[in-house]
Structure formats: structure tokens, C-alpha cells
Design a protein around this nucleic acid. Structure first.
Lengths: 254, 254
DNA sequence: CCACTTGATTTGGGATCCCAAAACGGTGTT
DNA sequence: AACACCGTTTTGGGATCCCAAATCAAGTGG
């Protein structure tokens, strides 16, 4: 599944993160280094690197002298992460629209838009299609980050992209729907809606309109925030696990 | 000097970064782990952690199989980092202005503004005053980041703040001035100008005006970008070392 | 019953050791 | 001189070991 054989610490971090996001740990539960070494069959070195990473992602919290404690991300955390990512992406969109080298990146974006369009237009949305759409969405966004010409943008963005990616994946999941056909219907609707925004952003960038590109990107991320918020409003007990449900494995970094 | 006795890897990173920013390494020069271990008298573990950090800061670059190479940051790098930081700070300012808990943070900001004002109003700008003003400026900005209520903002911002801090420090340095008295004069002028923007931002936040707070913060960071750009225009050979000159030790993290 | 001491366990973090893989360097062959 | 071959360094990264400091868990004495 994972094409790139990453170093153990990254893989470890992904596994632990995945464990936590699936709700296998109680809030505040202690993560013992020794325990993790044993269950994952590695030494402390990579474990400590992984814990460092996860701390930065705010999935765990450290308490001086007592190790790391699980800090299950809340829906509020996700909203915050999405907010930051969206804000950075809007900067990226502006810079991208101003870049004179932007032509070379446009085909990738166009292709991503087409792939999503195809998924949304197909009769039903099976698992493979969902994955395809998610991958294309990711391509669309990372292309903008990479192409904007400011390396710090993509760097900082990557640091906090796990939760937003998860949220993006969850937009095809709708607990309020009655049956799977209905769910699929709504998912495709949202997919089409999001892709329409992609289209507008793409055109603004292509036309070299920085203000519009930034504004539209801002709106795009705001759409996701609003979606999660209404979701939360409808279902007070909304947890991160619900969002995880259809977001695919959170381990697919890069 | 350093109150917090940080772990060795952070201190190491600071030392190496400082070395590089002072131009002690040629562009592309190889950083040998063994060498660093010897000169700093530590083992490879902290060295590797430090190199990891510096890579993220883009002060060094790694070339698979050949270790790390020095990548002296250019003025363009600084501009990019400032741009990202400024963008994040403008988000922070907006959120801060919307926060209902903002009252408790206002005194800190007010105090910072007053300290800078005092420095600018004093007859001359000695070294101690420069340090004081720098520290207050840092307080002003980090307060906004911390107080905005979105932990991801301050987290991501910290990741790339070394170069911007350096640039901020350099704003009291003006190579175009003829003598030190003239330099001091100009420095105080810029200090006052920047502080006027601080005042406006402070008031917008206090008044709970998110749009104005964000806009003014954007303008504030744009001022710095413009300053560096005109600097660069006047002196094509402007290097990072020039900016380092009056920015104080780049080791004062947190 | 509470405060204080003491010993076992854990964390934090650095030093070494080790090994595979890649790069470098020198040698000999065509 | 170009190129393949082979030994030597480095790098990359994990496993162990080690030690100081903090925590926890009893146990002891007032």
C-alpha cells in the first residue's frame, strides 16, 4: 500500500496516530515508551522520534516528568487546523496567481478537477471512486502549495495537514442520510459543489487574478468549516471518529 | 544569558544556525556529522536532531547519501519567511479580535508598546535599548499568536520564525546612513513608525474589529517586506549577514 | 492520621555500538 | 584514457547502554 518505504519513526507515528484517532485510547491515557517499544517491537529511539512528531501534531501532549498523555483531538481541533491550512492555502493561491511560471502547473490541476468531476458524475460512488476523488483533491491542493513559489508555505502546511486531510475525506460521509444510496447521492452533490470551487480557483489562477484566487480559496476552506459546523450542530456528540469513518487510512502521507 | 537551559540539541541547532548565518560556511559546503560531534563535543544523537531541525528551517539541505549541505539563506528566503509569518499573524490578529477572552492579554501588548515607545523617545539608541525594543517587539507579536485561541497558528509560526526575527532585528540597522548618530536617528524613526502600527493593531483588537485587525497586521508585515526590498534595491549585494549584523544573537529562542 | 523518608520505577536525554547501503577512491584491465 | 572492480569511508538509522532527575509507592515515625 505504502509505496515509499519510510523510516520507521514516521511509520510508527502513523500507526500510533491511527490508533488514537480510532479511539483506542481514553483521553489522558498515558503512553508508556516501554509499552510502545514492546507492542511495536522497536527500540526507544524511533519511538521517541515518533512521539515528538505526534506532539507537534497535538495528538498527544507531554507532561514534564510523566511522559506523554493521549489528547484525543476534538472537532474543535480539526476546525482550527482546517482554518490554518485554509489560510495558508489562500496565500498560496494568491502567490500562485502572481507567479510567471504558473503555466506548467495548470495541467495537473485541470486533471485533478476532471478526475473529481468523473467521480461525481458516475452513477454511484463506490469505495474506489472515493479514494480516487480524495487523491485528486489532495493533488489539487498540494499542487497549489508547491507551485506558489514560497517553500515555507508548503512546509508549514504539511506540518498540520493530518487533521484537515481527515476532515476533507469525511466530507463524503453523511450520518444524517437514511440509506447508502442517499448517502452516495449527497456525497456526490458535495463533491460537485467543492469541485465547482476548484474550477473557479483554477480559472482565477490561470487568469492571473491574485485577489480572486485568494478570496475563492478562502471561501473554499470556509465551506468545509461550515460543513463540519452544521454537522456538529445536528449531532452534538460528533466525534473525530465519526469524521475518520470515511476518510480512509490517515497513514497516507505524501 | 539564556535563562532556560534547553536540551542540547536545541542549543546545538542554535549554534550551528548562528555559525551559518554569520557566513562561516560556503554555500553547498558539506556538514559532516563526525566533524560537528568533534567540534561541539557531543555524540551523534543530538547532532542528528539538530540537523533535522535546521533542515526544516531550510538553513541546510540534505542530499540523500551525501549528508547535509549548507544552504545559506538568501534575502529572498527571508522575504518568503516573513511573508508566511505575516500572513499567519494576520489570521491571529483577526481571531484575537474576535476572542471574548482578549481582555486578559491586552495589558501585555500595551506594555510592549510602551517599552518600544520609550526606547524610541530616548535621546539615543544604545545597545541595551535595542535589545529591549527587540524583546518588546517579540512579546507583542507572540502575545497575538498565543492569544488568538488557535494553537496551530502559534505552532506553525514558531517553526519558521528564526529568519523573520532576524529581519525584524535588522530593521534598526541602516547601512546607508553616514555615521552612527545618523543610523541611530533613522533606527528610532523606524521604531516609532512600526510602533504606530502596533498601536493601531492593538486598538483594533481591543475594539473587537477583526477585519481592521487583520488588515493592519497585514500592512505591518508588508512594511517590513518593503523595507527589506528597498534595502536590497539600494544595495544589490545585500546578504543575510548584513541583516544579521544588528539583529542580535539568533539564538534567543522563546 | 498525616508528614516525611526511602527505595523502586519511569522519564529524559545523551553516549556508544552496530550494520546496511551508498558514495568515494584507487587499481587494474582493455 | 575509459571503465569495470573492489576496498574504504560516510551516511542513515536503529539498538543498547547509561545516568540523572522526577514520580510513585510504600513504609515509618511522630
Amino acid at each position: 500500500m505504502n509505496a515509499t518505504m519510510d523510516s520507521i519513526d514516521l511509520e510508527l507515528a502513523a500507526r500510533i496516530r491511527s490508533d488514537i484517532l480510532q479511539g483506542n485510547y481514553a483521553e489522558g491515557e498515558r503512553l508508556s515508551e516501554a509499552q510502545l517499544c514492546q507492542t511495536h517491537n522497536v527500540s526507544r529511539t524511533p519511538v521517541r522520534l515518533a512521539l515528538r512528531l505526534l506532539e507537534r501534531e497535538r495528538v498527544i501532549r507531554r507532561s514534564e516528568g510523566r511522559g506523554y498523555l493521549v489528547q484525543n483531538p476534538t472537532v474543535a481541533d480539526i476546525l482550527q487546523a482546517v482554518q490554518v491550512r485554509g489560510h495558508l492555502e489562500s496565500l498560496a493561491a494568491r502567490l500562485f496567481a502572481l507567479s510567471d511560471k504558473r503555466a506548467s502547473f495548470l495541467p495537473d490541476m485541470e486533471h485533478a478537477i476532471n478526475v473529481i468531476e468523473d467521480c461525481a458524475d458516475a452513477g454511484s460512488l463506490d469505495d474506489a471512486a472515493i479514494r480516487r476523488a480524495q487523491a485528486a483533491n489532495k493533488t489539487f491542493h498540494t499542487t497549489i502549495l508547491k507551485a506558489c513559489g514560497n517553500a515555507y508555505v508548503s512546509y508549514t502546511c504539511e506540518q498540520i495537514s493530518h487533521l484537515p486531510m481527515l476532515a476533507a475525506g469525511s466530507m463524503v460521509f453523511d450520518r444524517s442520510a437514511n440509506d447508502t444510496a442517499d448517502q452516495s447521492e449527497r456525497a456526490m452533490f458535495r463533491l460537485r459543489l467543492g469541485n465547482a470551487q476548484h474550477q473557479v480557483i483554477y480559472e482565477a489562477i490561470k487568469a492571473g487574478d491574485p485577489v480572486r484566487a485568494e478570496g475563492m480559496m478562502r471561501e473554499h476552506s470556509h465551506t468545509m468549516i461550515e460543513y463540519i459546523q452544521t454537522f456538529e450542530k445536528r449531532d452534538k456528540s460528533l466525534t473525530v471518529m465519526d469524521l475518520v469513518a470515511y476518510s480512509g487510512m490517515p497513514s497516507d502521507t505524501e
